[in-house]
Amino acid sequence: MDALEAALDMIWPRRLARYSGWAMIAPAILLVGILVLGLVQIAEGSLHTLDRSTFLPSEEYTLANYQTIIDSTTYWRVLWRSLLGAGLTVFFTLLLALPYSYIMVRTSSATIRKSLLVVLFLPFFIGQVVRAYGILIVLGTSGAVNDVLGLFGVEPLRLLFNFPAVVFGLVQYMLPFSVLLLAPALTAIPRETETAASSLGANWLQSFWHVVIPMAKPGLVGAGLVVGTLSLTDFAMPAMLGGGSQDFIANAIYDQFFRTADQGLGAALALLLVALGSVIAGVVIAIFGAGTLGMGGRK
């Protein structure tokens, strides 16, 4: 034991003890550092335009790529679509996740709780792309949904390859995440609080609206933030369910990096996306306070 302690002393002398905390978070700092380094490189790249006679980035620094984005109606449209898509996804996901997690947390039946959990976790083992393919099959012109509609004499409908289909795919993809983020927040609300509300004269709906939702706010904000940023930056759902005409920012970035080989423009778009996501997260945290997210800030 003494030998062990002596050895430990050699590696990490006692006088360094007050730096132990820093040592613990060093790996995290390192990871964030790599991320920042990448961002710096992307920022540097975004300041060079592509010379199409040599396909090399220009020597001089310029803001031309940003100018291109600002002048382009396409990018504004794609940006707006991403924001709208993310917003709608947050709205519908929370709308569905709230009752789902509420029932899962509150049900007295172990069978119902287990079934809800299984249904929730099953999609986790199926990747996003496979799930999108599932949607392609189910909602396709000759898919299950149109088969059922056909029974009622409805001509096959084009359910895919439009904006609602992308939002549908995103909601389907995000639902498990938001349920997982909401469930602990709902568990933290004592059952007694709801009983109290009902004894004070609130019917079920009033108790849900005036008590459960305000008390679940940390979970709702956290889930909304995660779902919002993941949707805003999503690539696969717009690519697969949008039929090519419903690009989000990530698809536009992909095109610049991998289709036109214009890495400068791609970098500028990527940086724009990072900035947009950060601003939104910052505004949400500023409005609701870090404390709402359980990060210990003062209210």
Binding site: P190, E192, T195, S198, S199, L200, G201, S207, V211, P214
Partner: peptide, 30 residues
């Protein structure tokens, strides 16, 4: 919620997102 029974609970079950006055006003609003 339609009965005329006031109850004080074991763990009080106050509404943490409201002020004291809002807690007291809650049954009146409902």
């Amino acid at each position: 919620h339609r009965r005329s029974v006031g109850m004080v609970f074991q763990r009080l079950a106050l509404f943490p997102h409201m002020t004291a006055a809002e807690n007291v006003a809650f049954p009146l609003k409902m």
